[in-house]
């Protein structure tokens, strides 16, 4: 590491854990990456904008949840492998605790009429939310024939042909890489 001398020492593992615990606890309704950007680059200044965008780019390229991947990469930059571990644990603990408590309560009385009605309404609304997120992330893809073709083919193989996901990726990734390969 030959980075320019930094007057502020790197944060402790405990500080990293608490910061990500906070992100995990307050980021309701998705969009966690936006919370991470604000807290990590503006409030804490642990990363500058370029570093954050580089982490985000790798997170989007790799499998896994973007927010978790960003926690892993930020943790590693700050405090190595232990930093990665505490950052991702912090991010996940609030949500896991919530779903476990709710899940256990729900599984214990699955035939609670009102709870079922509420979940049915939430499920319908969640379908709308998911469509909106897909649209927001994908609308740029819909303008390019090449991208639109890949979007449609992936959906078609998965949902209409009912192929398994590994099979869909085995077919689509090489085709898409060929189409999007860097220009020599």
């Amino acid at each position: 590491m030959n980075e320019p001398a930094d007057p502020t020492p790197p944060p402790s593992l405990w500080e990293i854990f608490l910061e990500f615990l906070l992100i995990g606890a307050i980021s309701f309704g998705g969009g966690i990456v936006a919370y991470q950007k604000i807290l990590l680059t503006e409030k804490r200044r642990w990363l500058n904008d370029d570093e954050f965008m580089a982490c985000l780019a790798i997170s989007q390229t790799m499998p896994g949840l973007n927010a978790v991947n960003i926690a892993v990469l930020t943790g590693d930059r700050l405090r190595g492998v232990l930093g990665s571990i505490v950052a991702s644990l912090g991010l996940l603990i609030p949500g896991v605790t919530f779903v476990l408590v709710m899940g256990i309560l729900y599984l214990q009385n699955t035939d609670h009429h009102l709870a079922n009605l509420l979940l049915a309404g939430v499920a319908a609304a969640a379908t709308g939310l998911l469509s909106a997120i897909t649209y927001r992330l994908g609308h740029r893809q819909f303008n390019h024939f090449k991208s639109l073709l890949i979007v449609f083919a992936s959906f078609f193989l998965m949902s209409i042909m009912s192929l398994s996901l590994p099979m869909v990726l085995l077919i689509m990734v090489p085709i898409s890489l060929l189409l999007f390969r860097p220009k020599a």
């Binding site: 989007q60 998911l130 449609f152 992936s154 959906f155 990726l169 898409s176 189409l179």
Partner: peptide, 11 residues
């Protein structure tokens, strides 16, 4: 290359 595949899978 992965972006349009992941949008298709999100659909």
């Amino acid at each position: 290359a992965l972006e349009p595949i992941s949008i298709g899978l999100m659909c």
